[in-house]
Design a protein around this nucleic acid. Sequence first.
DNA 1: ACAAAAGTGTTGCGGCTACACCCATGA
DNA 2: TCATGGGTGTAGCCGCAACACTTTTGT
Lengths: 230, 230
Amino acid sequence: MVHYDNHPKHFVAVDCVILGYDKGELCVLLYPRGFEPSKGAWSLMGGFVQEGESSDDAAGRVLKQTTGLDSIFMQQVETFANPDRETEARVISIAYFALVRMDEHDKACVREHGAHWWPISDLPEVVFDHREMVRKAVVKLQQEAGYRLIGKELLADRFTLLQLRKLYEAIFMREFDPGNFRKKIMSLDILERLNEKDSSESKKGAYYYKCKNSIEEKGLDRIVKSEFIY
Amino acid sequence: MVHYDNHPKHFVAVDCVILGYDKGELCVLLYPRGFEPSKGAWSLMGGFVQEGESSDDAAGRVLKQTTGLDSIFMQQVETFANPDRETEARVISIAYFALVRMDEHDKACVREHGAHWWPISDLPEVVFDHREMVRKAVVKLQQEAGYRLIGKELLADRFTLLQLRKLYEAIFMREFDPGNFRKKIMSLDILERLNEKDSSESKKGAYYYKCKNSIEEKGLDRIVKSEFIY
DNA sequence: ACAAAAGTGTTGCGGCTACACCCATGA
DNA sequence: TCATGGGTGTAGCCGCAACACTTTTGT
């Protein structure tokens, strides 16, 4: 591990799989690549890791630049380091994924970058190995959502159980029994029922819930134990 | 993503958490750092990612150099990219873990590097963030071993169910009921009973088993569903 | 009256846990 | 004969899936 100078240096980038949820669909934020090669293909939001900057910081910076959002749930997915994964130069890329509320991000900011939300189930052609990054990010999201309650991160402050269930159905790409889903979530004792109802989605009206800010999310048992197929 | 030249380049290394199993203990291969800083502390086996070499290749190369082993189960753990994680220079490190059979590796090769096997449960002082790398690698191993049968990778070609159970107890740091463990494993229908017995560990003698080379390891259900505590 | 979602209850199955029990054999 | 692990069986528990059923209210 001595002789550092004998060894090559590399460009190191982060690519962010920014995931949002809207109208029953899980979406990812892409921007159009405006130059060759692969002009016209879409790309994840990315940036280079700078001197004195950790990759976590770099990912946060990219997220901030493109959505205006700060202190968002982010997690490392995997590092892609094939020497020929990009065509112009060798770039080693650390993929991250982030969960944002699609109604809360800075739309001007996104528009300025020409970015666009694409449904996970119907992605356009993307650049390099970015499709694989998205795939791996979704698998990570599934693992994450299977162990602890996502929802805070992708829904508004308050939400109905229908909305939460639809979110989980979008994440796991399968349907959940309404009754059983309700009981499972309730048994975790992490939601607090508000006194307001939402009548837009049903005649009877469903109570809003919010996450107990109470605490610690420690050691929940599994929410979904299914296999991952995506 | 243009203007590559405006961006800094970094040293990129791989660090291998080489795990083995011997006499009921999960062990990791470390070698003593022979120079300051942190002289006397132990270090994971590592190396720099070269031009035209993927990080997977680099990890394989390091493993080959230090154990003489080839085509071994390896998996990326996580990338460590804090700017100050090493003291001499900034090095971004991609951590890998590997599973090797402690009786099969090239002992001369290991000795030549001054390397030594340390039990996971009682590590010496290690350099930089290597302890965290080991921790994360073990968590990954637990996840892996919970979904599919490790054993091929860490035990000899043939093994008794006692040996397999002891291995799982070492990985998960808890005990398994002998009867239940046997039934669980058998229900997976992936082991083939040989006609030889091992009498060294019991009076009655236990049949040797080996993994059905049959095939595909597809979609096993969970072997261990417990939470991860390490 | 009907549809549609909210919300609750019930039942059955499958897997896991805990533990009892016989077997074989070396010391 | 006794201790030890091999190997099998069983009973209880718990969680989940499937689905029935009641409630509420807008149209």
